[in-house]
Nucleic acid binder design. Sequence first.
DNA 1: ATGGTTGGGGGCCAA
Length: 264
Amino acid sequence: MNKTLKIVSWNINSVRLRINMVLDFLQLHQADILCLQEIKCETDLFPYDAFKQAGYENCYVIGQKSYNGVAIISKIPLTHINIANVTGDQDGARFISANLPSGVVLKNYYIPAGGDIADETENVKFKHKMDFVRSLCDTATPNIPQIILGDFNIAPYEHDVWSHKQLLEVGSHTPQEVYLLNNFKQAGDFCDIARHFHDASQKVYSWWSYRSKDWQKSNRGRRLDHIWCSNSLKDSIKNFDIYQDYRNHERPSDHVPIAIEYAL
DNA sequence: ATGGTTGGGGGCCAA
Protein backbone atom coordinates (compact mmCIF):
# COMPACT_ATOMS: atom_id res chain seq x y z
CA MET A 1 0.00 0.00 0.00
CA ASN A 2 1.30 3.46 -0.90
CA LYS A 3 1.76 5.86 1.91
CA THR A 4 -0.03 8.52 -0.13
CA LEU A 5 -2.84 8.38 -2.67
CA LYS A 6 -2.66 10.71 -5.64
CA ILE A 7 -6.22 11.73 -6.49
CA VAL A 8 -7.01 13.63 -9.69
CA SER A 9 -10.09 15.52 -10.93
CA TRP A 10 -10.53 16.29 -14.64
CA ASN A 11 -13.43 17.48 -16.75
CA ILE A 12 -12.38 15.56 -19.86
CA ASN A 13 -15.15 16.69 -22.26
CA SER A 14 -15.46 13.26 -23.97
CA VAL A 15 -13.43 10.41 -22.51
CA ARG A 16 -13.50 8.42 -25.75
CA LEU A 17 -12.02 11.25 -27.81
CA ARG A 18 -9.23 11.86 -25.31
CA ILE A 19 -8.53 8.37 -23.98
CA ASN A 20 -4.89 8.38 -25.11
CA MET A 21 -4.25 11.75 -23.49
CA VAL A 22 -5.74 10.48 -20.25
CA LEU A 23 -3.67 7.29 -20.27
CA ASP A 24 -0.50 9.31 -20.95
CA PHE A 25 -1.33 11.56 -18.02
CA LEU A 26 -1.93 8.63 -15.65
CA GLN A 27 1.36 7.02 -16.53
CA LEU A 28 3.41 10.23 -16.42
CA HIS A 29 1.99 11.49 -13.13
CA GLN A 30 1.39 8.15 -11.42
CA ALA A 31 -2.16 8.86 -10.31
CA ASP A 32 -3.86 6.32 -8.07
CA ILE A 33 -7.42 7.55 -8.56
CA LEU A 34 -8.87 9.61 -11.41
CA CYS A 35 -12.27 11.30 -11.16
CA LEU A 36 -13.68 12.34 -14.53
CA GLN A 37 -16.55 14.63 -15.44
CA GLU A 38 -18.29 15.11 -18.79
CA ILE A 39 -17.35 11.68 -20.10
CA LYS A 40 -20.13 12.18 -22.69
CA CYS A 41 -20.88 8.52 -23.29
CA GLU A 42 -23.28 5.89 -22.09
CA THR A 43 -22.08 3.66 -19.26
CA ASP A 44 -21.70 0.63 -21.56
CA LEU A 45 -19.56 2.58 -24.03
CA PHE A 46 -16.99 3.66 -21.44
CA PRO A 47 -13.44 2.52 -22.40
CA TYR A 48 -13.09 0.07 -19.51
CA ASP A 49 -10.56 -2.14 -21.30
CA ALA A 50 -8.13 0.68 -22.00
CA PHE A 51 -8.05 1.65 -18.33
CA LYS A 52 -7.72 -1.97 -17.21
CA GLN A 53 -4.76 -2.53 -19.49
CA ALA A 54 -3.11 0.55 -17.98
CA GLY A 55 -3.47 -0.90 -14.49
CA TYR A 56 -6.70 0.77 -13.46
CA GLU A 57 -8.87 -2.27 -12.97
CA ASN A 58 -11.57 -0.60 -10.89
CA CYS A 59 -13.82 1.68 -12.96
CA TYR A 60 -17.05 3.01 -11.51
CA VAL A 61 -19.12 4.82 -14.13
CA ILE A 62 -22.45 6.55 -14.53
CA GLY A 63 -22.86 7.80 -18.07
CA GLN A 64 -25.55 9.04 -20.40
CA LYS A 65 -25.79 9.70 -24.11
CA SER A 66 -24.15 12.92 -25.36
CA TYR A 67 -24.12 14.85 -22.11
CA ASN A 68 -22.65 14.84 -18.61
CA GLY A 69 -21.43 11.54 -17.13
CA VAL A 70 -18.93 10.97 -14.31
CA ALA A 71 -16.53 8.20 -13.39
CA ILE A 72 -14.05 7.11 -10.74
CA ILE A 73 -11.07 5.12 -12.07
CA SER A 74 -8.81 3.47 -9.53
CA LYS A 75 -5.79 1.22 -9.17
CA ILE A 76 -7.15 -0.04 -5.87
CA PRO A 77 -10.65 -1.43 -5.27
CA LEU A 78 -13.11 0.98 -3.69
CA THR A 79 -16.31 0.22 -1.82
CA HIS A 80 -19.78 1.69 -1.18
CA ILE A 81 -20.31 2.95 -4.74
CA ASN A 82 -23.17 5.44 -4.80
CA ILE A 83 -24.78 7.13 -7.81
CA ALA A 84 -27.85 8.68 -6.17
CA ASN A 85 -29.07 11.84 -7.87
CA VAL A 86 -28.67 15.06 -5.92
CA THR A 87 -31.95 16.79 -6.77
CA GLY A 88 -33.86 14.04 -8.59
CA ASP A 89 -34.16 12.61 -12.08
CA GLN A 90 -33.56 15.94 -13.79
CA ASP A 91 -29.88 15.86 -12.79
CA GLY A 92 -28.48 13.57 -15.42
CA ALA A 93 -25.32 11.67 -14.57
CA ARG A 94 -23.61 14.21 -12.34
CA PHE A 95 -22.58 12.36 -9.18
CA ILE A 96 -20.71 9.25 -8.10
CA SER A 97 -19.04 8.45 -4.80
CA ALA A 98 -16.96 5.65 -3.31
CA ASN A 99 -15.18 4.87 -0.07
CA LEU A 100 -11.38 4.85 0.11
CA PRO A 101 -9.61 2.07 2.04
CA SER A 102 -9.20 4.52 4.95
CA GLY A 103 -13.00 4.81 5.13
CA VAL A 104 -12.92 8.38 3.86
CA VAL A 105 -15.71 9.07 1.35
CA LEU A 106 -14.69 10.35 -2.09
CA LYS A 107 -17.42 12.28 -3.91
CA ASN A 108 -17.18 13.29 -7.56
CA TYR A 109 -19.58 16.04 -8.74
CA TYR A 110 -20.39 17.65 -12.04
CA ILE A 111 -22.45 20.65 -10.94
CA PRO A 112 -24.60 22.06 -13.77
CA ALA A 113 -22.96 24.89 -15.71
CA GLY A 114 -26.20 26.85 -15.69
CA GLY A 115 -25.48 29.20 -18.61
CA ASP A 116 -24.41 32.83 -18.55
CA ILE A 117 -27.71 34.42 -17.51
CA ALA A 118 -27.79 34.34 -13.71
CA ASP A 119 -31.56 34.58 -13.24
CA GLU A 120 -33.57 31.66 -11.91
CA THR A 121 -36.85 32.84 -13.45
CA GLU A 122 -35.45 33.59 -16.91
CA ASN A 123 -33.02 30.68 -17.13
CA VAL A 124 -34.12 27.19 -16.09
CA LYS A 125 -30.57 25.89 -16.39
CA PHE A 126 -29.43 28.42 -13.81
CA LYS A 127 -32.29 27.39 -11.51
CA HIS A 128 -31.20 23.76 -11.83
CA LYS A 129 -27.66 24.75 -10.86
CA MET A 130 -28.83 26.72 -7.84
CA ASP A 131 -31.20 23.92 -6.77
CA PHE A 132 -28.34 21.46 -7.06
CA VAL A 133 -26.09 23.48 -4.73
CA ARG A 134 -28.97 24.18 -2.31
CA SER A 135 -29.54 20.44 -2.13
CA LEU A 136 -25.86 19.91 -1.34
CA CYS A 137 -26.21 22.41 1.53
CA ASP A 138 -29.29 20.65 2.86
CA THR A 139 -27.73 17.18 2.80
CA ALA A 140 -24.23 18.05 4.05
CA THR A 141 -22.68 15.57 6.51
CA PRO A 142 -20.01 17.55 8.42
CA ASN A 143 -19.13 14.67 10.74
CA ILE A 144 -18.22 12.23 7.95
CA PRO A 145 -14.57 12.57 6.81
CA GLN A 146 -14.63 13.11 3.07
CA ILE A 147 -12.90 14.41 -0.02
CA ILE A 148 -15.21 16.06 -2.52
CA LEU A 149 -14.12 17.20 -5.92
CA GLY A 150 -15.13 17.84 -9.47
CA ASP A 151 -16.28 20.51 -11.88
CA PHE A 152 -18.29 22.77 -9.56
CA ASN A 153 -18.79 25.40 -12.29
CA ILE A 154 -18.40 28.16 -9.68
CA ALA A 155 -15.31 30.33 -9.23
CA PRO A 156 -15.76 31.83 -5.76
CA TYR A 157 -12.76 34.12 -5.19
CA GLU A 158 -11.85 37.37 -6.92
CA HIS A 159 -8.67 35.79 -8.30
CA ASP A 160 -10.50 32.65 -9.40
CA VAL A 161 -11.48 34.59 -12.54
CA TRP A 162 -9.57 36.78 -15.00
CA SER A 163 -11.77 39.82 -14.28
CA HIS A 164 -13.83 39.95 -11.11
CA LYS A 165 -15.64 43.13 -12.23
CA GLN A 166 -16.47 41.91 -15.72
CA LEU A 167 -17.79 38.56 -14.53
CA LEU A 168 -19.82 39.65 -11.50
CA GLU A 169 -23.08 39.13 -13.41
CA VAL A 170 -21.97 36.14 -15.45
CA GLY A 171 -22.93 32.63 -14.36
CA SER A 172 -20.09 30.94 -12.39
CA HIS A 173 -18.95 34.09 -10.53
CA THR A 174 -22.14 35.82 -9.33
CA PRO A 175 -22.55 36.70 -5.63
CA GLN A 176 -25.62 34.44 -5.33
CA GLU A 177 -23.70 31.38 -6.57
CA VAL A 178 -20.69 32.20 -4.38
CA TYR A 179 -23.01 32.64 -1.39
CA LEU A 180 -24.54 29.19 -1.89
CA LEU A 181 -21.19 27.52 -2.46
CA ASN A 182 -19.86 29.09 0.76
CA ASN A 183 -22.97 27.88 2.59
CA PHE A 184 -22.21 24.37 1.38
CA LYS A 185 -18.57 24.70 2.42
CA GLN A 186 -19.58 25.78 5.93
CA ALA A 187 -22.37 23.20 6.24
CA GLY A 188 -19.98 20.39 5.33
CA ASP A 189 -17.02 21.83 7.30
CA PHE A 190 -14.81 21.74 4.20
CA CYS A 191 -11.41 23.13 3.31
CA ASP A 192 -10.79 24.45 -0.23
CA ILE A 193 -7.47 22.71 -0.83
CA ALA A 194 -6.27 24.91 -3.71
CA ARG A 195 -6.66 27.99 -1.51
CA HIS A 196 -5.02 26.16 1.37
CA PHE A 197 -1.86 26.01 -0.77
CA HIS A 198 -2.30 29.28 -2.74
CA ASP A 199 -3.42 32.40 -0.87
CA ALA A 200 -6.34 34.48 -2.12
CA SER A 201 -4.12 37.06 -3.86
CA GLN A 202 -2.83 34.51 -6.40
CA LYS A 203 -4.61 33.87 -9.67
CA VAL A 204 -5.52 30.18 -9.91
CA TYR A 205 -7.43 28.84 -12.92
CA SER A 206 -8.40 25.36 -14.12
CA TRP A 207 -10.45 26.25 -17.22
CA TRP A 208 -9.89 28.39 -20.30
CA SER A 209 -12.58 28.86 -22.95
CA TYR A 210 -12.18 27.36 -26.40
CA ARG A 211 -13.43 30.69 -27.76
CA SER A 212 -10.11 32.43 -27.58
CA LYS A 213 -7.46 32.71 -30.25
CA ASP A 214 -4.60 32.38 -27.79
CA TRP A 215 -5.75 31.12 -24.39
CA GLN A 216 -2.30 31.54 -22.87
CA LYS A 217 -1.79 35.11 -24.06
CA SER A 218 -5.22 36.38 -23.03
CA ASN A 219 -5.30 34.10 -19.93
CA ARG A 220 -9.02 34.63 -19.43
CA GLY A 221 -9.35 31.63 -17.16
CA ARG A 222 -11.59 30.60 -14.30
CA ARG A 223 -11.12 28.20 -11.36
CA LEU A 224 -14.18 26.01 -11.89
CA ASP A 225 -12.66 22.72 -10.74
CA HIS A 226 -12.17 22.06 -7.06
CA ILE A 227 -10.89 19.56 -4.53
CA TRP A 228 -12.16 20.03 -0.99
CA CYS A 229 -11.62 17.94 2.12
CA SER A 230 -13.15 17.80 5.57
CA ASN A 231 -11.26 20.23 7.81
CA SER A 232 -10.39 17.25 9.99
CA LEU A 233 -8.38 15.82 7.04
CA LYS A 234 -6.54 19.01 6.14
CA ASP A 235 -3.22 17.91 7.62
CA SER A 236 -3.35 14.70 5.57
CA ILE A 237 -3.27 16.63 2.27
CA LYS A 238 0.38 16.90 1.31
CA ASN A 239 0.26 18.55 -2.09
CA PHE A 240 -1.96 20.30 -4.62
CA ASP A 241 -1.18 20.52 -8.36
CA ILE A 242 -2.71 22.03 -11.48
CA TYR A 243 -1.45 20.55 -14.76
CA GLN A 244 -1.90 23.67 -16.88
CA ASP A 245 0.27 22.26 -19.69
CA TYR A 246 -2.58 19.91 -20.67
CA ARG A 247 -4.44 22.94 -22.05
CA ASN A 248 -1.72 23.03 -24.73
CA HIS A 249 -2.17 19.40 -25.74
CA GLU A 250 -3.40 18.62 -29.23
CA ARG A 251 -7.22 18.68 -29.11
CA PRO A 252 -7.35 19.53 -25.40
CA SER A 253 -10.24 19.60 -23.00
CA ASP A 254 -11.08 23.15 -21.96
CA HIS A 255 -10.39 22.02 -18.36
CA VAL A 256 -7.02 20.84 -17.05
CA PRO A 257 -6.42 18.13 -14.43
CA ILE A 258 -5.99 19.08 -10.78
CA ALA A 259 -4.63 16.74 -8.11
CA ILE A 260 -3.89 16.20 -4.44
CA GLU A 261 -1.70 13.81 -2.52
CA TYR A 262 -3.57 12.34 0.42
CA ALA A 263 -1.59 10.62 3.18
CA LEU A 264 -3.33 7.50 4.38
C1' DA B 1 -22.08 44.29 -25.16
C1' DT B 2 -20.92 40.77 -28.25
C1' DG B 3 -18.60 37.02 -30.19
C1' DG B 4 -15.62 33.69 -30.24
C1' DT B 5 -14.87 27.34 -30.43
C1' DT B 6 -15.64 22.54 -29.35
C1' DG B 7 -18.10 17.83 -28.81
C1' DG B 8 -21.80 14.63 -29.76
C1' DG B 9 -24.32 13.17 -33.29
C1' DG B 10 -26.24 13.85 -37.21
C1' DG B 11 -30.87 18.73 -35.35
C1' DC B 12 -28.77 21.89 -32.87
C1' DC B 13 -27.96 21.86 -27.94
C1' DA B 14 -24.74 22.48 -24.18
C1' DA B 15 -20.69 24.41 -22.47
